[in-house]
């Protein structure tokens, strides 16, 4: 097997090509993921040190066009409904461009109201008024509030206690209390605790148990899976490695083997990264593959904050602590 290299230029070309695929049905069928997709693309470009590939003003205009005045949040696409997931993507893009002020104070207040309105009595969050509850939304809510400098004790403390209820004996976290451990939920729970400076609400033994469970995600092929006895998938390179990095145990993963796995998932012809070798690439796996490589200090990639999956130069301005 020949030594694989990161196909930097091809990945940039691939990301640049995403908005030119309007002749493909898939482009239209994925509108409900568009704002998330723009965040993934922009962050991938940042990692590749090529952020100028996107036209900043066009992207900001697109984000603002996704504003849903009925909910007071961002939707995935103009005329769609606002949701916490897409609200975070919108804020991440604006923050990355240092353009949060483009929102104006009125929208910032509406955003705060929208986010807070989705917190339930037990501290959990629903994604929108339709009631789906998931630890993903605790993370998105706390990350949004941190970006907007709106974290308060009243929001954070119940959220933290909810997260702790989702911790499982095996060292993982579920999407709800009693739900099976899943690596993406380990990220949302640990990173949410890290945002609000509450990692110490887990005992050192629990933190070690979490790191042990995460290290078990690496399979002989070198990639990481999301749950026991599942296939490896590039996106877990981010969910698992970023979480271990927050716990200062990233080296519990074999870096050369994981690097090789991610590089094998590149499309050598058109760029982009897929979930597993020889599968169809997409921007989601591209950014999380690159993010994983960045945590492993792959040469030529920029550093990224494992808590926010955003540049450190941006996240250093976010609110990390809240006043009592």
């Amino acid at each position: 097997m020949s030594e694989q290299q990161l196909l930097r230029d091809k990945h940039i070309d691939y990301i640049a090509s995403l908005d030119t695929k309007k002749d493909d049905l898939e482009y239209w069928l994925s509108e409900h993921l568009r704002l998330n997709g723009v965040y993934w693309g922009l962050t991938a470009l940042y990692l590749l040190d090529s952020i100028e590939t996107f036209n900043k003003e066009d992207v900001i205009q697109f984000v603002l066009s996704c504003w849903d005045h009925k909910t007071g949040g961002f939707a995935a696409f103009p005329r769609h409904d606002g949701h916490l997931l897409t609200t975070l993507s919108g804020l991440q893009i604006l923050a990355t461009y240092n353009a949060l002020e483009r929102l104006g104070s009125e929208k910032q207040e509406q955003l705060e109201k929208f986010i807070l309105s989705n917190q339930k009595a037990d501290g959990s969050f629903q994604g929108d008024s339709f009631g789906e509850v998931d630890t993903r939304f605790v993370y998105t809510a706390l990350s949004c509030l941190s970006i907007l400098h709106k974290l308060t004790k009243e929001v954070v403390e119940p959220a933290v206690s909810y997260i702790l209820r989702c911790y499982n004996f095996d060292g993982g976290f579920g999407l709800n209390p009693e739900a099976e451990s899943h690596a993406a939920q380990a990220f949302t729970c640990i990173a949410a605790l890290a945002i609000v400076g509450k990692l110490d609400s887990l005992t050192p033994a629990q933190q070690e148990n979490i790191a042990v469970w995460l290290s078990e995600r690496q399979v002989p092929e070198g990639g990481l899976n999301g749950r026991p006895s599942k296939l490896p998938d590039v996106c877990y390179s981010w969910w698992v490695l970023s979480t271990l990095s927050i716990l200062q145990k990233a080296d519990w993963i074999d870096f050369p083997k994981l690097t090789e796995f991610i590089l094998h998932c590149q499309d050598p012809k058109n760029g982009g990264i897929s979930d597993r070798p020889d599968n169809e690439v997409d921007v989601f796996h591209t950014v999380f593959g690159l993010g994983g490589l960045s945590i492993m200090k792959y040469p030529g990639l920029r550093d990224i904050d494992p808590v926010y999956c955003m540049p450190y130069t941006v996240t250093k301005y976010f609110q990390r602590k809240y006043s009592d």
């Binding site: 002749d23 998938d233 499309d267 897929s274 597993r276 599968n279």
Partner: peptide, 23 residues
């Protein structure tokens, strides 16, 4: 995309796909 095998798109295949998808 999760679990979708990568395909080689020759110019001809791509043209056919797009023709089919246009409508």
């Amino acid at each position: 995309m999760h679990g979708v095998t990568r395909r080689e798109w020759t110019k001809e295949l791509l043209r056919k796909k797009r023709e089919k998808e246009r409508q």
